[in-house]
């Protein structure tokens, strides 16, 4: 949380016109934002374009901006919104019949040392199958809550859900995992 405190301090300095603080915010957050953006399956270039848009956006609006409650989450929300907008633009030009929603990619880990190991391969397949059963939004919310381990408050902001709906979505997703987790061979866990 120390990094978050530092980000808030820097954000205040940035709002009062300190360009050094602005660069600090970029350097500190660009890496995590990039890796987060890759989860939406729009490709590295799409993510970079949106990071550019997010940072140019906060600079353009710095005169009328407040300090976000949580800097990292604020940047994540902004990036996600940008990815969503560019997705909708692409869909329109292709006249595709999609709802403009974004996919959310989660993958099983692959340990290099076990790459030829049959047991490891079975484990990987089983995890993949469970993940396939989840909707993009289910994967997304589980990612925030259990992989990034964000506070519920931030999860709600990122998902644009009320606390109760977010809880429900998490419970439903966990239920789905639980049901299928049981069916899989236990030797890989």
């Amino acid at each position: 949380m120390q990094k978050e405190d530092e980000s808030r301090r820097m954000w205040i300095r940035f709002l009062s016109g300190d360009n050094g603080a602005y660069e600090w915010l970029y350097t500190e957050h660009v890496g995590p934002l990039y890796r987060y953006g890759l989860h939406f399956g729009v490709g590295a270039e799409g993510v970079e374009d949106c990071i550019q848009e997010v940072f140019a956006g906060i600079y353009r609006n710095r005169k009328r901006q407040a300090v976000p409650e949580h800097v990292a989450t604020y940047l994540m929300v902004s990036l996600k919104n940008c990815l969503l907008r560019s997705r909708q633009r692409i869909d329109r030009t292709r006249e595709a019949e999609t709802d403009g929603a974004l996919d959310f990619l989660l993958e099983p880990t692959v340990e290099d040392t076990f790459i030829d190991n049959e047991q490891e391969e079975n484990r990987r397949k089983a995890i993949e199958q469970i993940l396939d059963l989840l909707t993009p939004r289910q994967k997304e919310i589980l990612y925030y809550r259990y992989i990034r381990e964000l506070e519920m408050e931030d999860v709600c902001r990122l998902m644009e859900l009320s606390y109760q709906s977010a809880q429900n979505l998490i419970q439903r997703s966990l239920k789905k995992i639980r049901e299928n987790f049981k069916k899989t061979p236990s030797d890989w866990v």
């Binding site: 890496g31 995590p32 890796r35 890759l38 590295a44 099983p108 995890i127 469970i130 992989i147 639980r178």
Partner: peptide, 19 residues
């Protein structure tokens, strides 16, 4: 316990490619 185990097998951001 189980919950944690399942998520242990999912790729973390730290395993994703860096910019």
């Amino acid at each position: 316990e189980e919950k944690l185990k399942f998520f242990d097998y999912i790729k973390k951001d730290t395993d994703m490619p860096d910019l």
